[in-house]
Amino acid sequence: MSASLVIAGREFRSRLIIGTGKYKTYEENARAAEAAGAEMVTVAVRRVNLTDRDKPMLVDFLDPKKYVYLPNTAGCFTADDAIRTLRLAREAGGWSLVKLEVLADQKTLYPEMEETLKAAKLLIKDGFEVMVYCSDDPVYARKLEDAGCAAIMPLGSLIGSGLGILNPVNIRLIVEQSKVPVIVDAGVGTASDAAVAMELGCDGVLMNTAIAEAKDPILMASAMKHAVIAGREAYLAGRMAKKRYADPSSPLAGLI
């Protein structure tokens, strides 16, 4: 099994993708990215502030030559808005690997799967490589893969909730059926959640709030790096079978 994560022909050594929102400063964000060992960061596309041009710029802290920028469509509630946003992102950044997310409502930010699938098909036709944020519904995950998505990214739980992997059975079903990378996106709250995702056989984890809103984001970024590696190794090692009763680890023979 490949030691690196391959998405749309690009090879990554790190299986941890981090967001760049909610940090106190871009400087803290940059240190967290370093501590996480991340090679890819998600970014948003927004209007340039024309009145205050002295505001710090993301690109001055997280070098796009060092980190692969993964433009997202956060805040888009229709396929049209998401496509418009990503076309602008492609022009701004000059690359076609993107994170598609079409959301259903403000309260849950749950993926609007009908619009997501529609947008994915149009974007792929337009030459984009689409990593897609989606529900943990294996049927829709399959449709997205069939449409040609480069990575399937089901939620562990709601964006920013930190509730962890609420439906490990579905995540596992998606992992088993998918030929493209499966990356849990959203819901991770702490290191064990990331490890659980990886132990289920996911190819990576994408998170933002779990690191940004930790009391010490840099230390949490480091914890997440280790959790993703630990979870991956545990998955590859193959866990022992669960048993209902004790099974002594010391030999029974030779007891005094």
């Binding site: 760049t20 929102g21 948003a44 209007r47 964006i159």
Partner: peptide, 10 residues
């Protein structure tokens, strides 16, 4: 016109 750039986001 819309003039956009990349900002921090999850």
């Amino acid at each position: 016109l819309e003039i956009v750039h990349f900002v921090g986001g999850g």
